[in-house]
């Protein structure tokens, strides 16, 4: 089994191409099926990734600890964090749903950010190649199941739904989830292939 250099294979149709030379910001698409083949990155963009991921982790903690919205009806008020909402669903006997929400909105985003930070940490690939490979695979496994942007839309829908019957105050958590959505989109604009471009040890 030999590594073939200078070739790229389309994930979605198996076509083989010579690896294109891309400048930062450029992207190559497969002429046969239209899938994204490769994109050019700059060292500046790669250097931004670590601070953005760190910021993502901080915002994640804030988003999870702060109330998302406060509701008030006839003098009775109630605020909830996502944790409390998941717990109250669990107490209602809806274990599968509370587990799904817990995973897609809390556990997997955290895993993704933490894994991304380990991968971006300087020299982590050379120091622990085994762990690096494992974490890289873990990251691409959880990636499709991270749904923070869907949660954000869900919060907005819930707020509008309640605003017909109660006084609604958006809390810190709502803004934090907005920021987290933006940060995750920045961090995730690169695929797992990007971690593997340097230091091929085959």
């Amino acid at each position: 089994m030999h590594l073939v250099h200078g070739l790229i294979v389309c994930d979605e149709c198996d076509s083989v191409y010579r690896k294109p030379d891309l400048r930062p910001g450029e992207a190559a698409t497969c002429p046969r099926c239209g899938a994204r083949l490769d994109r050019g990155t700059s060292s500046a963009r790669r250097a931004r990734q670590l601070p953005l991921t760190l910021a993502g982790l901080v915002v994640f903690v804030i988003a999870n600890l702060s109330p998302i919205v406060t509701m008030e009806i006839q003098g009775v008020s109630n605020a909830t964090t996502l944790w409390q909402a998941v717990l109250s669903l669990y107490r209602q006997g809806m274990l599968p749903i509370s587990a799904a929400v817990f995973c897609t909105a809390i556990l997997f985003p955290l895993t993704l950010l933490a894994a991304h930070m380990v991968l971006l940490w300087p020299n982590s690939q050379n120091r622990h190649p085994r762990v690096f490979a494992l974490i890289s695979r873990l990251m691409s496994m959880v990636r499709p199941w991270v749904m923070v942007e869907v949660l954000l839309l869900g919060i907005l829908v819930a707020v509008v739904k309640l605003s017909h019957m109660a006084e609604i105050d958006p809390g810190v958590g709502l803004w934090a989830y907005g920021a987290l959505t933006v940060l995750l989109a920045c961090v995730l604009s690169s695929g797992p292939q990007e971690h593997w471009t340097d230091g091929i040890q085959a």
């Binding site: 109630n78 109250s88 839309l153 819930a158 309640l162 019957m165």
Partner: peptide, 28 residues
């Protein structure tokens, strides 16, 4: 595909928020 989870999140948040003993409760 992921955007269909929307309703699940809405129900979760409503079930967490609307737990006002006598006035109103929402469950999934």
């Amino acid at each position: 595909g992921r955007w269909s989870m929307l309703d699940i999140f809405v129900v979760t948040l409503l079930a967490g928020l609307v737990q006002l003993q006598s006035l109103a409760t929402i469950t999934a």
